[in-house]
Computed example of a mutant assay.
Amino acid sequence: MNAFRKLGRVAGIAFTLLAAAPAIAATCGNDASGFERWLGEFRREAAGAGISASALRALDGVTYSTQVIGLDRNQKHFSVPFEQFVANRVTKGRIAKGKQMLKQYAGPLARIEQRFGVPGTILVAIWGMETDFGANSGKMPVFRSLATLAYDCRRTEFFTAQLLDALRIVQRGDLSIGQMRGAWAGELGQTQFMPSSYVKYAVDFSGDGHADLIGNPVDVLASTANYLKAYGWQRGADYHQGGGNFQALLGWNKAVNNARAIGLFADKLAQ
């Protein structure tokens, strides 16, 4: 999934720090020269915002990434016909794999639909389109990516919130520091949650004590359903363009073609 679409879907979420937390005011910069100073300032202010010393160890050795900055500066906004958009996303191979996943996770998907109202075909379609069912979740160090983008002056407020919530994911024990790898802009897990969405919507549906969106498909599917429910998903409503659930799919990803593709994928999975 293109990062600009992923960021666009969460840019409107209101992010809040802990009630007594001070504002994070470390000085941003546009090259690597001030990064170490910024990181030291951020660490002190994050500690004041309630981040534990053990979680802050995630920032040990973190360096500025010119690769991440390059990727951020070179995003391409393409508008393509729907048929072209779905050609490499809703493929025969993915449909076949998706049907296998529907059978493999039939029990959990039924319980997820009972709780959140989202059918398994929609969840499996999103799973397939986002990361090819977990095969391509990303391997970049999330803390390096987020620290670089939080320091960068372009969108420092947004990514500072993401970095704080990435630390909270570690602090609450959902993922270890070593597990925090994902896409270049900090997206995590098999359906690519930004950290603030992870903190807000991830659920421990498997009951093992951790909301693991990297290694536990049951948590992945349930958390994706929880996200959609929070964006207004209505049990049983139509999810195609013009239907009651199409806006929830746009809450997942603001690109109309993407929402339409999810619906098409789900339809094919149901056949």
Rank of each mutant, 00 (worst) to 15 (best):
V118H: 03
T160S: 12
G215H: 14
R168V: 09
P217R: 08
G182P: 12
W233R: 06
T131K: 09
W233P: 04
T224N: 15
Q192R: 10
I112V: 11
G243H: 12
D132A: 14
G128L: 11
V203D: 08
E130Y: 06
T224Q: 14
G236P: 06
F159D: 03
L175C: 03
S137D: 00
F143G: 03
Q241A: 15
L163F: 09
T148E: 11
V170R: 04
R144M: 15
G215V: 00
A211F: 09
F193K: 11
G173E: 05
S206N: 15
P217I: 04
P141N: 10
V118W: 04
A202K: 03
S145W: 05
T148G: 13
G120P: 07
G236K: 05
Y198F: 15
N136P: 00
S196C: 01
Y198V: 01
A125G: 15
E157L: 14
D152S: 12
G182E: 11
D165I: 00
P217F: 08
R155Q: 14
W127P: 02
Q179E: 15
D212E: 07
L188T: 12
L167K: 08
C153V: 05
V218C: 03
V218N: 01
Q234L: 11
R111W: 00
Y227R: 07
R115C: 00
Y239W: 15
S206K: 09
F159Q: 05
D165G: 00
L228G: 07
K139M: 01
F133I: 03
K200W: 04
R168Y: 01
L163Y: 12
A161T: 01
Q162M: 13
Q179K: 11
A183I: 01
G243F: 09
Y231K: 12
